[in-house]
């Protein structure tokens, strides 16, 4: 697939935005500026960025408890996202959602979710809605390896296949459901096999390779748009940080972490763009610098933003 310079810049920039955003949150957590939990997407950037880069602004996504990356890739505003994570009034959900519930329906982001597998029903329903309204949209449904052991996963895959819904189910297999590895929790290690029972086409993709993700997701998005039904992709990837900030990562080795960091999605893509003569090192450095400024501005905005007024406690519950 030909990569234009414009596209290369967009992909690289978004991946860097996610990485720096997440690194920054880790810093804010350490300084107690950010409170509560936060599940960071660092290491997995190529999946969200590659997948979402092939859909349209009016297409939908559903996200996960590790949802910052999806929100940024779905045209999320860094300032409003950072403010939300700090519980500020200017946040994308007015400070009522937080890290686990980043959503922006105006951009087709039907939300991150604090319940593992929580987005599967919403995504499948959005697919049904598209079909019943005879629209040409698609849904990308992101979830983790752990969610494929949850009952609603099976209920939704059955419905989606039965009714040929335009949903691309994307399992981000980062090897661990919190601390329990795929080996220790899945009877079937190749997760794509779970889709076979529902007659849904499925394939694995290298989740560290943003171009590979684009190609595979692009193919199945077209399939969905043509009305042929759902598909199932397992993007094999790795999260750099622990499950959440309190995680000492005792269930995995430092060697394993090193192995994956040597396959860093941002470095892999930057090197490839340099080799192919699409981007120069100077251009890459300048994108990184630009992102650094944006993330700093987002943090500054979030910290300076006010918290919601007490009256906000009871607003937005009912219409």
């Amino acid at each position: 697939m030909e990569i234009s310079k414009e596209l290369a810049i967009k992909l690289l920039k978004q991946m860097m935005e996610i990485r720096q955003f997440e690194d920054m949150i880790m810093e804010l957590l350490a300084k107690n500026i950010a409170e509560g939990g936060s599940h960071l997407y660092a290491g997995m950037e190529a999946v969200a960025v590659g997948a979402i880069s092939v859909i349209r602004p009016d297409d939908y996504i559903t996200s996960t408890h590790r949802g910052h990356g999806h929100a940024i890739a779905k045209d999320g505003d860094l300032k409003a996202l950072m403010a939300e994570i700090l519980g500020k009034k200017t946040g994308v959900c007015k400070g009522k959602g937080g890290s686990l519930h980043l959503a922006d329906l105006s951009k087709g982001n039907l939300g991150a979710n604090g319940i593992v597998g929580g987005g599967l029903g919403i995504a499948t329903g959005a697919g049904l809605s598209i079909k019943l309204q005879k629209q040409n949209k698609v849904v990308l449904c992101f979830f983790g390896d752990g969610a494929t052991n949850n009952g609603i996963f099976f209920e939704c895959l059955n419905m989606a296949s039965l009714w040929k819904l335009p949903v691309v189910y994307i399992c981000e297999n980062n090897k661990y459901a919190m601390s329990v590895s795929v080996e220790r929790s899945h009877a079937v290690k190749d997760i794509t096999k779970k889709a076979i029972a529902f007659d849904i086409p499925a394939e694995n993709v290298d989740g560290q390779d943003v171009i590979a993700v684009r190609e595979v997701v692009g193919k199945w998005v077209n399939y969905a748009r043509e009305g042929k039904g759902p598909s199932f992709i397992v993007a094999n990837t790795y999260r750099y940080y622990g499950h959440s900030r309190s995680d000492p990562r005792v269930y995995r080795t430092r060697e394993e972490e090193k192995f994956w960091k040597e396959r860093d999605p941002i470095i892999l893509f930057a090197n490839r763009m340099k080799q192919e003569g699409i981007l120069s090192q100077e251009e890459i450095d300048s994108i990184e610098e630009e992102v650094r400024k944006e993330v700093e501005e987002a943090v500054d905005f979030a910290i300076k933003s006010p918290y919601p007024e007490p009256e906000e406690l009871y607003t937005d519950l009912y219409i």
């Binding site: 995504a123 329903g125 049904l128 939704c156």
Partner: peptide, 21 residues
């Protein structure tokens, strides 16, 4: 008519309600 999938019945109905139905 849906399959016997109560969790997905409510979940998909929610998804449809969020997207125009």
């Amino acid at each position: 008519d849906t399959p016997i999938s109560e969790n997905a019945i409510v979940g998909t109905a929610l998804g449809a309600a969020l997207t125009g139905l």
